[in-house]
Design a protein around this nucleic acid. Structure first.
Lengths: 335, 335
DNA sequence: AAAATTTCCGAAAACGTTTTCGGAAACGTT
DNA sequence: AACGTTTCCGAAAACGTTTTCGGAAATTTT
């Protein structure tokens, strides 16, 4: 690929490269007339500024990196769309990388993006490990950082989270109201704050209604993970009356296994998902699920990042807690 | 952010920057001993090469751009994972951009990636318009390009496609075998080759079985698009006995509307999806769908791109046609 | 009309690398 | 011991921009 450069234009018009540069950046020491002449010529020649060179000299890129654990569920893509909307408005480009639920790959992704001089990073953790110490280094170096959904503890930076405590509480209470007492709790990875918060919500709902707290199992966020847990439950013959699942994918995986084994949902086992996906309203039975405002999460994260980018010096870490709602459907109804 | 550079290391060790550079690139005119000394020091200082600077001088980036129309359906994410697997093995990083089904945004994305000196581009079209002429320019400039799934006509470059003709034929034939004669065909945007191929497959299946060819409707690839079409059919009272949908999302959107209006699937209306999503096996009724080898599509696209990158000079456009299969489930069964 | 100010632009350095060229030092050959 | 090779490394140019500095030209002020 042969790229047309500022030099080509300069030569063509017999001006200095600095003048051409000025024409594009519209700093105010160029005669409007020459600016137009240059812009016109540049247009004719099909010139496009080289962002690589610009990054090198300006030490900034107008790029924002977004790192997500996976994008097979529509949750993260939707968050990204929200973030993009805001960032595009402020002339930032968005580079997306996915870590495939691997902490190592996540670190690698983060480093790649930093090497490429992104101006800031929006991250959802794939897990908890070495990555945190790297993020600490980054915050010390004043790299603007915003976490969302799966956020770290003990790092002084901005977060966008869902009120997992509250909605786990409500979801559990909903099941209790339906008359179910033996409720199994399926949580995501234990180190994640969101898991801890949901656990508290689950526990507190039991306490409020004076019901002995049920069993808890740790599980991943995929359909396969859910299916595996369901199989285990069946072989161990420890099937609960109701289940609060880690997310919709997990719930759906469980439902399939249960149905295949002849159990009826919700007659034999009631189930509630989390982070409502599009599937929830379409599967059979329709799935009760806690809905998260995905788009808003992305927007909020982008806005927090923009704030950090604007007040370069001082940055007061903020945590935005977003609200959700419980969509009650067939899968959790008393019969 | 303060970055540690090659100069810092050079100063620290009293060597020239070129020597440090050599240590990293392991061109063979450096003494192993000094190389190790430099590498050790660099490690201690936490140095990481700046890819921006490298890109500028080498005029290549070891980055590959992938442009997709959307990523709410898991189809494109899966393709990306396949491509990533291959590209990572060859030390390429992957930059993902999504066009939100907009041709304009797609062009913008492509230009951004080109400006950022990606070494090649893997693209699925959001539509057909000005983008094609830009891609023609790119091929003339020898930018390695591979299209997949939604590919352009009349551009001399490599493609990875699904055998849409064959599988639309089989899907239609399946419906005919079930005894349905009045089969509605829902196609994606008309300009897309895949739509044309599927149309031919649909037509030929009718011809083979001497059945008059049914009605065709053009539709988008989203759940909403499907829902809208279904509503129209109901108000116009032109409901067919069977439907071959543009994709699973579209099919699911239709099914919901039909069910809400009291129709039974498949008793009243049979339906077949396309590009099997994870939902197909979990919705009610389970959805018959043509399964595409998403992961393989990504891998194949990556491999075609690597070939172009390796034989820089000559490039013989190739088209890889991948095979699929029809997963027959409840939604298309005769009762 | 001279002086002071402003407007505009060119030259050159800088960003962090790679790469080419040449030369010093070390080695091998006669 | 003189020469030819090879090994290793430093100096400097290059990539395409932005930015600083200074100065010429144009304009305003006296």
């Amino acid at each position: 690929m042969k790229y047309i450069t500022i030099k080509d234009i300069a030569k063509e018009l017999n001006v200095a490269v600095s003048t051409v540069s000025r024409a594009f950046n519209d700093k105010y020491d160029i005669k409007p007339e020459t600016r137009d002449r240059i812009l016109k010529k540049a247009g004719e020649m099909g010139y496009r500024p080289n962002p690589i060179a610009r990054k090198l000299v300006q030490q900034r890129s107008f790029n924002i990196g977004i790192i997500i654990p996976e994008f097979e569920n529509s949750f993260f893509p939707q968050v990204i769309m929200g973030a993009q909307e805001i960032l595009y408005q402020h002339n930032y480009q968005v580079l997306i990388m996915q870590s495939n639920e691997s902490v190592d790959l996540e670190i690698q992704n983060a480093k790649t993006l930093v090497d490429n001089m992104v101006d800031g990073l929006i991250i959802s953790l794939s897990g908890v490990g070495d990555n945190l110490s790297y993020y600490k280094v980054l915050t010390e170096k004043k790299m603007p950082l915003v976490f969302f959904n799966r956020v770290p503890e003990n790092i002084e930076t901005s977060n966008v989270v869902f009120d997992d405590y509250k909605w786990a509480f409500f979801a559990t209470e909903h099941l209790i109201h339906q008359g179910f007492k033996d409720i199994l709790f399926i949580s995501g990875a234990n180190e994640l704050i969101l898991s801890k918060n949901r656990r508290r919500g689950y526990d507190d709902a039991h306490k409020k209604h004076r019901i002995p707290i049920g069993k808890k199992i740790t599980c991943g966020f995929s359909m396969q993970d859910g299916a595996q847990i369901a199989k285990n439950l069946i072989t161990e013959n420890t099937i609960p009356r109701a289940i609060l699942a880690a997310n919709d994918a997990c719930a759906i995986g469980m439902i399939r296994v249960f149905k295949d084994s002849g159990f009826k949902i919700p007659e034999d086992i009631a189930i509630v998902g989390f982070s409502e996906t599009k599937m929830a309203a379409h599967i059979s039975p329709t799935l009760t699920s806690v809905e998260q405002p995905t788009y808003e999460i992305g927007k909020a994260a982008a806005q927090l990042l923009l704030e950090q980018l604007q007040n370069k010096g001082i940055h007061i870490p903020q945590t935005i807690v977003l609200n959700g709602r419980l969509n009650v459907r067939e899968s959790s109804m008393k019969v």
